[in-house]
């Protein structure tokens, strides 16, 4: 009995020893790479934003200038998202908003878009989607330039009736055989622009700067 107890204690100590070494290795790597990872993630996000807004058009730190946007039906969101505000000389230039098209062919399509202060689109990108490969996935910039047709469009230049695909009498092209997907994207962008019109002023007021160490 005693021998069994002693051997199991030895085994446990052995395992604990390896666990401690493993944890030490992990935590030191984590600390060594933490700042680089945060910087890389931010750089990647900035790169995405730079596709929507030329970096020369604003001079603030867009990653820190954040406004929390409550979930809203017009944005298709069901939880709060973060909008990034671009300013130049302290004056608001544009806002980077997230929106969701709920009615894609295979579920939700997540979008990110930059809307200038005057209500015109800087650009739109699809961040996440499950559309049929080879059919509805041309909304993805990696597959096709279709999404760029949104660049510069605004609701003041084009009336509501134009915010449809050509098949429905609107101004947006689509590919034969896949109309559900672009229809969903166009509708979502149009609604997000309407949301912007309704909330323009409050959107450009940033939250109080995040406490130090808070997640970006």
């Amino acid at each position: 009995m005693k021998r069994i107890a002693r051997s199991s204690i030895q085994t446990a100590v052995n395992l604990v020893f390896f666990a401690i070494i493993g944890t030490a290795a992990l935590s030191s790597t984590y600390h060594l790479t933490r700042d680089t990872i945060a910087a890389t993630v931010e750089k990647a996000k900035l790169k995405l934003v730079s596709q929507l807004l030329p970096p020369s058009s604003y001079d603030n730190n867009i990653m820190q200038d954040i406004r929390t946007v409550e979930a809203d039906e017009m944005l298709g969101t069901d939880e709060a998202t973060q909008a990034h505000i671009a300013r130049r000389d302290g004056k608001p230039v544009a806002v980077v908003l997230e929106a969701i098209a709920p009615d894609g062919y295979s579920g939700k399509i997540s979008l990110i878009m930059a809307i200038h202060q005057d209500g015109s689109l800087g650009g739109v990108r699809v961040v996440k989607h499950n559309e049929t490969p080879g059919l509805g996935d041309y909304i993805d910039i990696a597959k096709h330039d279709w999404i760029k047709t949104f660049d510069g469009r605004s609701r003041s230049l084009f009336p509501d009736g134009m915010w449809k695909v050509r098949k429905d009498g609107g101004m947006f092209d689509y590919m034969a055989g896949a109309t559900v997907t672009p229809r969903a994207v166009v509708k979502a962008v149009n609604r997000a622009l309407q949301y912007f019109e309704a909330h323009r002023d409050e959107l450009f007021i940033a939250d109080t700067p995040p406490a130090k160490g808070a997640r970006i």
């Binding site: 049929t132 490969p133 080879g134 059919l135 590919m175 034969a176 055989g177 896949a178």
Partner: peptide, 9 residues
């Protein structure tokens, strides 16, 4: 699966 677009015409 491979040619969904052609398969819808």
């Amino acid at each position: 699966i491979s040619f969904p677009q052609e398969m819808t015409q």
